[in-house]
Design a protein around this nucleic acid. Structure first.
Lengths: 349, 349
DNA sequence: ACGACTAATGTAAGCGTTTGCGGTGGATTC
DNA sequence: GAATCCACCGCAAACGCTTACATTAGTCGT
């Protein structure tokens, strides 16, 4: 085992100096530091994480809790978070709070779920936590608070937790306005649902933005135009089939609360013989990588950047001195990306 | 801070006994153990990971290295691995070895990539490593070996590393045989490519299985029927457009090396007016969640189970005594799932 | 030339567990 | 009833670092 002592010996200094040199402390002479670095390099020495943590109280590790692991959006957030953490020398340990129905640790009360909060997150393995789109109850929130580490939420409904989120109302309004500006008046909205109905306000916000845009354009909202699905392609498809199958609806445009649902909508439209965008315009939200492929107009919300932001927010708190090239700005960016799925409304047939 | 001493005090025993009781060691009287557990519960005590690691040399943490974070397959593997690790009380720390072209740490020599191998993975934060679909050079492999921890590869071309992998040749053969059994003779193959051309033998294996199946069916292979894409929907789409646009090809079926490419193929077919499966049969590999939606026939390779297997293999090595309900079997399961995208070949037009 | 600083380094006391070793007392054996 | 054994538990020494504090050697001002 190559410990810090070996390095000290080889460099001809004390272990304290090695520690300081390797940690980049300013109180080490340049020449000494160089010698230490060289010795460490030669021995292939790397500080032991656990020893360092125990002594310093810092783990250089950040936890990320996520409800989904195999969805593009969440993977992208993870990617962004990992990149900025790694660049700062931090590790990322991942906690999956499974939110799928069957067998998943969905409901509070599920043993796996309890164990996550009561055991895994309490063992001081991380310096801080990122909670992505998490819905939890008060006991869980309390147990998060008990770990006494910086915590930032991303897009979730965590009451009392500093949370980064796009302005869902504004985003939805922008999307709807895009359709309005193209002359559409029969605009349907494929809204989202949560796995369990708690106060997951994202769908509500987006619906609010949709309705606001309509109101401002003096278009009367028609409840038959609004349907909910589960954020997936299949969900968007099914709902759109309903929408297009109902002779009373007569929608010329669809605003879906996620890109995946929008893809489903596009496919559904095609399956019933409606051309996109000639007969039906479709717009989504997310900036999914497949938008390019499907030609879907969307509001890009840059999920990777969201992950970066969450991470750099925490880093700034953990290392107040260091310069992180992270923007101070808390509001998350979004951007209308116009592609081929939206066009001027056809004159009423 | 509630340390082990507080618990010892409350339970009226020494810290040694608390440690043993909490660790489930057999040399603790049942009554004592109960008292300790109760005391720990009451104080909300959880063993400090770093102190425990330092003292015991075990971190109860496994590292997972992946080239992609936002692709369904990799997310699913991650999900499976996380579940079995968590059930065994292990944490999972994630390392992203970015394999996308632009800006990613693709090429060996990239500083981020080097740092991962030389620094992050060396700091003894994990007891073992899972390397998923990783391509690396000798220096990198050597540095992995230097960390001296159990290591298992999943589906990657890691020479000299115990690797779990489906039998790609057999899988491809099975897929092709399915098409053959439906009477197809002009069977195209959409093969995969790697980001950088190293010895990533998965595409080669699958092509080999394809060719073997043809040979055994006395169908002469036609090189014009084989094209490569990058495992994505867009890639599969583009290649299929070529295939169907070439009058010399006359394919009635396509075997794609991944489900995503198969989706692309289905969409391409529809875009050029070919009906699936009436005019063109399509089969993929993976068991992607969207297969159901698209009605794609595929060979399911159960990625979540692959993650589970990789994890339980390591757990067995880390805890030889414990009973893990993991199968001894090293060969990974796969299964033909027939849906609506494959049908009997139309009689030649 | 001498005291007062400052910069650089060393000394050693933790950090919170785990675990080898040894001790104690009750049960078992002859 | 002595000898032996065993089940259970406590003592205290690591584990490999970090860091407050002490120490040393220059530097500077006067």
């Amino acid at each position: 085992m190559t410990s810090i002592e070996k390095v000290a010996e080889l460099a001809g200094v004390s272990t304290a100096t090695v520690s300081r040199a390797l940690a980049g402390k300013p109180t080490v002479a340049a020449a000494t530091r160089a010698r230490v670095l060289e010795a460490a390099q030669e021995l292939g020495y790397v500080v032991s994480a656990s020893a360092s943590s125990l002594a310093s109280g810092k783990t250089r590790n950040v936890g990320v809790v996520m409800p989904f692991l195999n969805r593009w959006f969440f993977g992208s957030v993870l990617k962004g978070a990992h990149r900025t953490l790694a660049d700062a020398g931090y590790d990322l340990t991942l906690y999956h709070l499974d939110s799928e129905r069957e067998g998943g640790a969905t409901e509070p009360g599920d043993p796996r779920r309890t164990r996550l909060f009561e055991e895994f997150l309490q063992r001081k393995r991380v310096d801080a936590l990122i909670a992505v789109s998490l819905e939890m109850n008060d006991a869980e929130l309390e147990s998060l608070r008990r770990i006494g580490k910086p915590l930032v939420g991303l897009g979730g409904p965590l009451s009392g937790v500093p949370t980064l989120s796009i302005d869902d109302v504004a985003v939805a309004k922008l999307a709807t306005e895009h359709l309005v500006s193209l002359g559409h008046t029969r605009i349907a909205h494929v809204s989202g649902t949560s796995t369990y109905a708690r106060d997951f306000h994202l769908p509500a916000h987006r619906r609010e933005g949709y309705e606001t845009a309509l109101r401002e354009a003096n278009i009367t909202a028609d409840p038959r135009l609004v349907r909910s699905a589960d954020f997936t392609i299949a969900g968007g498809y099914a709902v759109t089939r309903q929408l297009l199958g109902d002779p009373e609806v007569r929608a010329t445009a669809i605003f879906a609360a996620s890109d995946e649902m929008a893809f489903g909508a596009m496919i559904a439209a095609r399956d019933v013989g409606r051309r996109v965008p000639e007969d039906l315009s479709v717009i989504g939200i997310d900036g999914h990588e497949l938008c390019e492929f499907f030609g879907l107009t969307t509001i890009d919300q840059f999920p990777e950047i969201q992950g970066e932001r969450a991470a750099s927010t925490l880093l700034r708190e953990l290392e107040p001195h260091t310069q992180h090239h992270a923007p101070e700005n808390v509001s998350l960016p979004y951007e209308l990306a116009v592609r081929k799925s939206t066009a001027v409304a056809a004159s009423p047939a």
